[in-house]
Structure formats: structure tokens, C-alpha cells
Design a protein around this nucleic acid. Structure first.
Lengths: 220, 220
DNA sequence: TTGCTAAATTAACGCCGTTTATTTTAGGCG
DNA sequence: CGCCTAAAATAAACGGCGTTAATTTAGCAA
């Protein structure tokens, strides 16, 4: 009986079409399928069967939606190790989880990295858990934030590169100007990245923690 | 005698107004003064006293211009130590230079990070120098790329640590849900980090190199 | 001299995030 | 029950962005 079925005129519908969950879900689906730049307000709206302006009844901006996505990701990172084991082991467990989430969701990371930082609830909750764990482990307050920043940046850098090898370099182009490096890239490519990348990450993380603890005067 | 002085009509001028150097210089000046998002084709053109379309006679895209900027940065990183001293000392000198360039030019790094990666010539040249240095130092080929990745991730991580993200968080909002973290942020804001950050970097780098060399079976 | 190419202008295009105005509905209150 | 306000949608537009097309002018080679 409904005339053309699809075309809804102006005006509030009987039951709401949008909410935060639906928007976040659709945004993540879009990023997954179309890549980091695949999320546009128009595209998101059409995926939700809605006009773009309707989104602004629920989110102040695209950045806010990206923060919802960020929050979903952060929720996946397990911080339960803090408070159960010593700070160094707990930090390693946390960082490893963090890194895996980033590695497995690199499209999201790229999308989020382009937006100004905002403290979404789950993100802050994670920071709080880490900060409390470090404090309990004997870290001085003023060294906690720099340490977290350094670890986080290292995680992002490693996660990014863990997925980068394909885009790394076109061996044909550079073999003339960079013979050694192009051979090294060739060897790296033929190995098993997932294993190699995880090794690289673990080694680097251990080294970073040692350095940070040293300069903070903490032992562990 | 020139009528209004400023207004040049259409047509090729007697002497060219643009070249790669001028464009890159102006782009870097713009990013420095207006931040990572301050570089627009229109703004760049007007800074050069030229129409936006004129830029496309010299660069295929904005991304290409950003790669020129990246190349300038990479050019600033001194790799001459490789081949002069042992691999470990040379790597430390190189990484320290790299880190300082990143720390002192953070706007550029942010701007570049938002663009798809492209292997700019100087970037590749730097990798080649490092790879050759490590190979000469006894590193096995297949361990070179992972080592560079780990070191680079560490450099980026430490460089981000060094510069204070002033926008980090609004302490008022989060003190309820994140008491420890908000106190840590407060302490972080009020300290002197340039010195501490450099210490963190040097200590961490030394530890990282030891860890990498160990797992690669190299001595140094 | 003629023609080709390079380097500039002017004008436009399409996409993006966002805003404003309008319409319709739901829900609370007398 | 009727009214009013707030909420949730549409429609239409805006300004800014990167980029392209068409045109104009200058230098240079045959």
C-alpha cells in the first residue's frame, strides 16, 4: 500500500532511524569496506538510508563519530593485567594487546590518526588503568604520561609498519639507486611477516621499557 | 610606469615564477606558520603570488608537494657516520639526528603522516646508507629491514613524547572517572621535558640496539 | 615565419563537512 | 483532550578544498 516505498518526506519519523550504535556500526562497516578515506558523511548517511544532515542531530561533527569508532577499538584492548602482575609484565601484556588490535584494524587506525585527539570514555578508562598500574608499580607521577605517550607512539609505529611491507617499495624502481636496501627489502618480504613483525615489536618494546624505567628511576 | 603594479594577466611570463625549490620553500613556510592543516593549494599559490592552477604546471598533486617536503626533511638527517665508525656508534648518531629533526619539525611530520606514503629519493637514500652500514657491520640481510623499522618506530615514538601535546586533555572533565590519570596529566604539564625526553631517547635507543643485535646474532 | 611547448590566468567542476530553514512526530502538562 | 516544546528527519544551500579545462602569452627551434 505504501506508494513508492522508498522516499520518506521531511519530518520526524514515528520511530527514530538513528542512534549512536547504528551510526558507529555503519561507520566501521564503511571504513572496513572502503578504506580509511571511505568514510564520508554523505556515504555514511546513504548507508543508513538517511540524509547527511540527519547525522548532525546525533553527532556534532565527523570527528565525534570517529571518536566513537576509536572508543570501540579501545574497548577491545585488555588492561586487566594491571593490578594482577608486576608493572613491567602488565605493561607488556597491555601493549601487546594494543598492538594486535591496531594491527588487525589498521584501516581504523589510519582514519583515527588523521583526527585531532579527543578523550573518549573508553580511551580515558584505558589510560586510567595503565596510569594506576604504573603508579602502583612505583612510577613517579610526572613520568607516567610521557611513558604512556612513548609506548603508544611506538605501538602505532610498529603496527603501521607491520602492515606496510606491501606498500613499502617497488623493488624495480629503486634497485639502481639503493642496491643494498632493495635486497634487504626482498629478504624481508619473503619471510613470514606476522611472526617477524611480532618479534620486532616484542624486542623493541622490551628495550623501550628498559630505557623508560631507567630514566624514570624505576626498577623492573 | 606599470599601471596598477599588481595584477598580471594570463599568459606565460618572461621569467618563470615557480620552480620546485620555491614551491617547497613556500610550502614549508606555510606549514610552519599555520600548522599541519595550513597548507592548501590556494594558500600556497597566493603566498607565491600566483594562481592555484599554476602549481599544477610543476606538481602533479598536493601529495607530490608533500613528498618534496618530506624529502627536504630527510635530507637534513646526517647519515655520514656510516662507513666511518662501527655500526652501533653510527646508528646512534644517525638515530639521534633523525630524532632531533622529527622533534624540531613536528608540524611537518604531522602533515606528511596524513598522506599516502611514497618513497621520495632522499628517503630511499637514507635507508640505503643505513642498510649498507648495517650490512658492513655484519648484519644478516633479512634482519636489516626489521631492525630499521623498530628503530624508526622508536624514534617516532620518542619524538612524539618530546613535544608536549598541549591539547591532551581537559583535567576538569575527567578527574571523576580517571583520578590517577588526571593527576598524572597535571604533573606532566608542569615539568621540563626537553632534557628528560632526550635522556629517555638515548637510554631507550641503547637498550633497543642491544636487544636487536642480540636477536639478530650480531655483536656490537 | 611558423609552429610547438612551457608557464601563467580565468573559470569551472565535483566532493566534502557543515549550517539553516522547514516539516513532522512524540511526549509531557494544563 | 488539546497544546506546546523538543526531537528527528528532509531539503537546500554554503564555503572551502583539490583538481581540471580552456585560454593566453612567451621563448625557442626548424
Amino acid at each position: 500500500m505504501h506508494p513508492v516505498d522508498h522516499h520518506r518526506g521531511a519530518g520526524r519519523p514515528a520511530t527514530a532511524l538513528l542512534n549512536r550504535k547504528r551510526i558507529t556500526d555503519a561507520a566501521m562497516r564503511l571504513i572496513r569496506s572502503k578504506g580509511p578515506d571511505g568514510l564520508t558523511m554523505a556515504g555514511l548517511a546513504s548507508a543508513l538510508g538517511v540524509s547527511a544532515a540527519a547525522l548532525y542531530n546525533h553527532a556534532d561533527s565527523k570527528n565525534m563519530i570517529l571518536r566513537w569508532v576509536e572508543d570501540r577499538l579501545m574497548q577491545m584492548i585488555d588492561v586487566s593485567a594491571f593490578g594482577e602482575i608486576d608493572w613491567r609484565s602488565a605493561t607488556i601484556v597491555w601493549a601487546r594487546n594494543y598492538w594486535r588490535v591496531m594491527r588487525d584494524n589498521n584501516q581504523f587506525v589510519e582514519a583515527i590518526a588523521k583526527t585531532p585527539i579527543g578523550g573518549a570514555p573508553q580511551t580515558i578508562a584505558m589510560y586510567e588503568a595503565v596510569a594506576a598500574g604504573l603508579l602502583a608499580g612505583g612510577w613517579p607521577l610526572e613520568r607516567i604520561v610521557p611513558a604512556i605517550i612513548a609506548i603508544e607512539s611506538f605501538i602505532y609505529g610498529s603496527a603501521f609498519d607491520a602492515q606496510a611491507p606491501e606498500s613499502l617499495l617497488d623493488p624495480g624502481e629503486l634497485s639502481a639507486d639503493a642496491p643494498v636496501f632493495s635486497r634487504a627489502v626482498g629478504h624481508y618480504r619473503s619471510a613470514d611477516y606476522n611472526v617477524a613483525a611480532e618479534h620486532t615489536f616484542e624486542d623493541g618494546l622490551a628495550a623501550l621499557l628498559t630505557g623508560l624505567a631507567l630514566s624514570a628511576g624505576v626498577r623492573g
